[in-house]
Amino acid sequence: MDTITTKEFRAFPGVEDWRPRATGALAVFRTGSFATGAQLFGAIAELADAAGHHPDVDVRYATVRVRLVTHSAGGLTAKDAAMASRISEAARELDIPAETERMQELMLAISTPDPDTLLPFWKAVTGFDEVAEGTLLDADGRGPLIWFQPVDRPLRGKSHLDVNAPRDVIEQRLEAALAAGGMIADDSHAPKWWTLADADGHKVDLCPWRGPA
């Protein structure tokens, strides 16, 4: 099955609760209790078995986090969009709201002039799989991502955290971080990303989710 772009995914009806990106389409549902979360999981399991297409589901006390991706195609497909719509419909029937402001992924960015040399070491010590060129992820879909950032020369700080989330979430985090004593270390790439620093100079990149059109 052919993959689709994030823009094509968003064009499908009924996927407003979902945020697509390279590692799949994500949704978070605010269940409020473990029992309600179990109900939603049961509904998702029935839909997944009927379609022969199974998402990653993380059930917590008050939330259910779902990630859809077609592993055999190496990305998002129309099957993911169709399943996303059905899952959102099941959540509405159970009166469970989506909570898009809680979506995020952490990524450890390793800056290096030679990613091909470093990646095998990190793959070996973590046991992660290479899910895209220069990007490692736990085979079970748990984070953080490890991304090897190509640079022309070694940086003074060779690794830093990336916080990836929808743009509205990132903008809220940016405002909150500055109010909490952080500072903008580099905004030359904004609005693609902002580099912030704490009072001791430790850096974090705030990166809005984006993908191919």
Rank of each mutant, 00 (worst) to 15 (best):
Y61C: 05
A62C: 07
A62K: 14
A62N: 11
A62I: 04
T63G: 00
T63P: 01
T63I: 01
V64H: 11
V64I: 06
L68W: 13
V69K: 13
V69Y: 05
V69I: 11
T70M: 00
H71R: 13
S72Q: 14
S72R: 14
A73L: 01
G74R: 07
G75K: 14
T77E: 06
T77C: 05
A78T: 13
A81P: 11
A81Y: 09
R86K: 15
R86I: 08
I87T: 08
S88C: 07
E89N: 02
R92A: 10
R92I: 00
E93P: 00
L94R: 07
D95Y: 04
I96V: 13
P97K: 03
A98N: 12
E99R: 08
T100Y: 08
E101P: 01
M103V: 13
M103Y: 04
M103S: 03
Q104I: 01
L106K: 02
M107C: 15
M107F: 04
L108I: 11
I110T: 02
S111L: 10
T112E: 13
P113S: 08
D114W: 10
P115R: 02
P115I: 04
T117C: 03
T117F: 05
L118M: 05
F121Q: 05
K123D: 13
K123M: 14
T126W: 09
G127A: 07
F128C: 04
F128S: 05
D129W: 04
D129A: 00
